[in-house]
Design a protein around this nucleic acid. Structure first.
Lengths: 337, 337
DNA sequence: CTGAAAGCGCTTACAG
DNA sequence: CTGAAAGCGCTTACAG
């Protein structure tokens, strides 16, 4: 296989017998091109293996063709799922996907964002928790007129693209699942309270408890922070405060792993003596031993849709539908069969 | 903070009272500029907050300013450490860091690479295991004259930048560490045999055994594949074949985690009844419970140096020093104190 | 060591 | 719906 000659827009125009402008329009999905000509141009481009030169597009159009995901999440599995979804949508449309970790200053991500925007141009922005809950960030982005999408914003924002699951219903349904398995003494391990989504999961947990015949005194709330270690610690507290608990809902899989490891270490059998369910269906949940029952949200698809809608917005210069809710499902595995 | 006006090379030239060309030379680190003028230009640029327009540079120079890391490694922690190192070096020099997963076809990554190179321009390439062991990939890159760096190549390659630790010595030293702790019955859990580095770690393991007074019959080799699951399975095999083993060296931390979880599940105390050491000092090793004694290699620094040397190579158009060995250290934690 | 001019491959008003 | 011309902000030979 040899490196194919690089063709330019002129070559394509010449081969297709149209003007350069028409070729440009075709590749920018402009509406004003007759279908026949469009097909002709696309055919010639395919035959010649033509790809528009991105730098030239950027320079001439003053657009960057870059979509940036701003995050502050140590969970690399989560991040790489988002990145995969973004990249799928981006490569379909000739865009670049970029991920950038924001470092908070005084509890706000605003400063880190401003610094980034000073250095780099972006055509669209995707925010995930906890950045998607930072109003000062959203304000800056809106001020600049940059189209943006929020993944799992805590409360529905009025503006921008919002892509989410119903965290509350999800928390409720996985708790119902535990209750249906006959557990009478339950515990919830929370994530960070700064993640609005985590609070919603907890609200769902309490809804399920309230709807059941389990008295509140048989239910414990343990403070976690999404880390494996906080799962260890939660189990230790549990041992002291409520040794009779048999069913645990951890607000994410990492804490579920921590809890299980701590339980195994203490000689407790999972799930025979202690059932644990997690949230996210991360690779962890599949590879742990025992494998972990978890509530799955389609992060990859959510990122993909966010990006597609973002590109629509960029192209049409206006936002149409903005709220997108995704369905979840419980993946039943060994930790709570 | 307002968005600062975008200055161009012309503005800088005017303010500094020099020609455009001189400004360009300064920003490209060309040697032929008097130091005084260089400082002048740099000063003006700093005052005005000038940043060269990347698209324009790319278009005019026909360079991409992109350095791509090709990998095929499911370990997202490892990948993000490499990415961080690359990005540090890239942002110092105005380059872009990009990571791309290659999908093997018929045991080779060549095809995936060619497809990528057809779509994107790259100025330099970084390869990590197992891609850094694929000679067909290296050949294609050399054929195109693209500067490249290999992270942890199995055998020292004659050409290109090679950045590595002495895997054999590392394997030996962590095994020595186990032996010094008094263990007489040992096991090694291997990684994938396609990773040359893993084979070296194993060679080091056997060297340490040979240098000790432990008879070979007290030593077991268990086949793993770097995954947590293969750590579980290894422990199960161990239980059947060699229940007296008290010290385990897993070729990476994920397998060490798997082994420990399986041991805890079987009611075995770690480290009291079974000591385990890992390799890589991944976040896992720090957050597991018990925390894991592991051999640390400075992946971040290795990626940083690779990238710096790569950029040197790109700029000077010739490769100077090419072999860089990094030191390792044993991080002692609870799984083998 | 430094300058004036052409050109990289696109898009964008502007006309029609 | 389509075309001819200017221009995006740099770098690159080419001169000197």
């Amino acid at each position: 296989m040899t490196i194919s000659k690089k063709y330019t827009i002129e070559d394509i125009a010449e081969h297709a017998g149209v003007s350069i402008k028409t070729v440009s329009r075709v590749f920018n999905n402009s509406p004003n091109v007759r279908q026949q000509k469009r097909d002709l141009v696309l055919g010639v481009a395919r035959d010649l293996g033509y790809r528009p030169n991105i730098s030239a597009r950027q320079l001439a159009s003053k657009r960057s063709f870059v979509i940036s995901h701003f995050h502050d999440n140590p969970n690399t599995d989560y991040l790489s799922e988002i990145y995969d979804g973004m990249r799928r949508a981006c490569s379909e449309q000739g865009y670049y996907a970029v991920a950038e970790k924001l470092e908070p200053k005084k509890g706000s991500y605003r400063h880190a964002l401003l610094e980034y925007l000073l250095r780099y141009e972006v055509d669209g922005v995707i925010l995930s928790p906890p950045v998607s809950d930072d109003n000062s960030v959203i304000r800056e982005i809106k001020k600049r007129g940059i189209p943006y999408a929020l993944i799992s914003p805590g409360k529905k924002k009025k503006d921008g693209i919002n892509v989410f699951i119903n965290e509350r219903d999800a928390g409720r349904s996985i708790t119902d699942f535990l209750i249906e398995r006959g557990h009478k003494q339950l515990a919830f391990i929370s994530g960070l309270d700064s993640h609005a989504a985590s609070l919603e999961r907890e609200a769902g947990f309490w809804e399920a408890i309230a709807a059941s015949d389990i008295p509140k005194k048989n239910v414990l709330r343990l403070a976690g922070d999404f880390s494996m270690q906080s799962g260890f610690r939660a189990f230790e507290k549990l041992t002291k405060k409520a040794p009779n608990v048999t069913g645990i809902f951890a607000a994410n899989d990492e804490m579920a792993v921590g809890t299980i490891v701590a339980a195994l270490r203490a000689g407790k059998k999972v799930p025979e003596e202690l059932s644990v369910v997690g949230f996210d269906d991360s690779p962890f949940a599949r590879s742990m031993w025992p494998t972990i029952t978890s509530l799955a949200q389609p992060i990859d698809d959510m990122a993909h849709l966010s990006t597609q809608k973002l590109i629509d917005w960029i192209h049409s210069d206006r936002l149409k539908e903005s709220q997108f809710e995704f369905a979840t499902q419980i993946i039943v595995r060994d930790s709570c069969p």
